[in-house]
Each structure stands twice: as C-alpha cells, then as structure tokens.
C-alpha cells in the first residue's frame, strides 16, 4: 500500500513538474506561421488603378482589382514549411504576398521604375532631399536606406549616392 502511494506521489510530482512548465513552449516550433499583425491605418500605402494597396491587406481583392499581372505571377515555397510567398509583377511595381490564417495578404510593394510615384510624389531617380522634404526628418537611416515607419508599414528608400534607387513598402518588424 505504502509502495503504491509512493509511486503515486512520484507520478504526481512528475505531472506537476510538467505542469509547472506552464506555457513556456506555446509557440509551435513546427509551424512557420508569420506573427499576426493587426491591419492598421498606416499613412504609407500605394495607389494603383484607383486601388489603395495597404500592407497586410487582402491580396486577392487587390489583384482582382488590378487585373492580370503583365509581368506574370511567381510563387516561392518556404523551405520545409507550407507557407508560400507570392509575387505579382505589374508594369511598374511588384506585389509580394504571404499567407496568414488561410488568406493571402500583402507583404510588400516594390516600385520597379520611375513611371510610378508614391502618394507623396517621390519616384525612383529623385534626390534624397526630395524624399526628406516630402516625408520629413522622422526617418531611420540604415545602410544607405531611409526608413519611414507608420503602424505596420515601413516605407524604405534605398539611396545610392544621392539618388533614390529603389522604393519599397513592406511590413515593419
């Protein structure tokens, strides 16, 4: 009887030790789910064909509104996991999507030539001064990039010399 009690105590203590771990490992290591990012009202978004393209917005709605991507569609699977990055190449910009909760969301917009400009009027080839006068001094400078962040969106200007070489709206970390 005593021995049985001892075993019961031992098993119970093992269970308690396990329970004591609490929720330390709640995030599932076997999943590549991107962290949920609440859709926000960032002041940085891009407009094309009268459609406001917002980071983390519904990609399917956007691509339906924009029509067939002239430069084609490409999808890149995550190594080992089911996640998929999707690329829609339009005339002067590329939309990059990701999957969250079974839905395609907008992850990034990359402007690819100077025929399009941001809502605030900056385009590839403009001078750095023009970026600063359009967006102000509240930026982070990192490796030659000017990064403006609002809510869930970072607007990134890659500057080469004194000139804007690339413009990208992307999900902020």
């Amino acid at each position: 009887m005593k021995r049985k009690s001892l075993v019961a105590v031992a098993v119970l203590s093992a269970s308690m030790m396990l329970a004591a771990c609490g929720n330390a490992g709640q995030n599932n290591a076997g999943s590549n789910a991107t962290q949920a990012v609440a859709q926000s009202n960032s002041k940085y978004y891009f407009t094309a064909k009268n459609t406001d393209l917002k980071i983390d917005g519904n990609l399917t709605e956007y691509t339906t509104a924009l029509g067939e991507p002239s430069g084609g569609y490409y999808e890149a699977k995550s190594c080992a996991f089911d996640g998929m990055d999707k690329f829609y190449t339009y005339d002067s910009f590329v939309l990059q999507g990701y999957q969250k909760d079974g839905q395609d969301r907008l992850y990034a917009i990359t402007l690819s030539d100077d025929s399009v400009k941001t809502k605030e009027g900056v385009r590839i080839g403009d001078k750095k001064d023009k970026v600063v006068s359009a967006y102000g001094n509240e930026y982070k400078e990192e490796n030659g990039q000017l990064i403006y962040t609002s809510e869930n969106t970072s607007l990134v200007f890659v500057i080469k010399g004194d000139t804007v070489e690339s413009i990208q709206y992307t999900m902020s970390n």
Binding site: G71, G72, Y73, Y74, F87, T89, V94, Q96, T110, S112, E142, N143, G144, Q145, V156, V158, I159, K160, E165, S166, Q168
Partner: peptide, 12 residues
C-alpha cells in the same frame, strides 16, 4: 519556370 520576379536592388 515561366517567369521570375525582378531582383530588387538592396541597400547593402
């Protein structure tokens, strides 16, 4: 392979 997204210039 049918098409590829354009390479984005990097800052670094």
């Amino acid at each position: 392979v049918t098409n590829l997204p354009k390479a984005v210039p990097l800052a670094n």
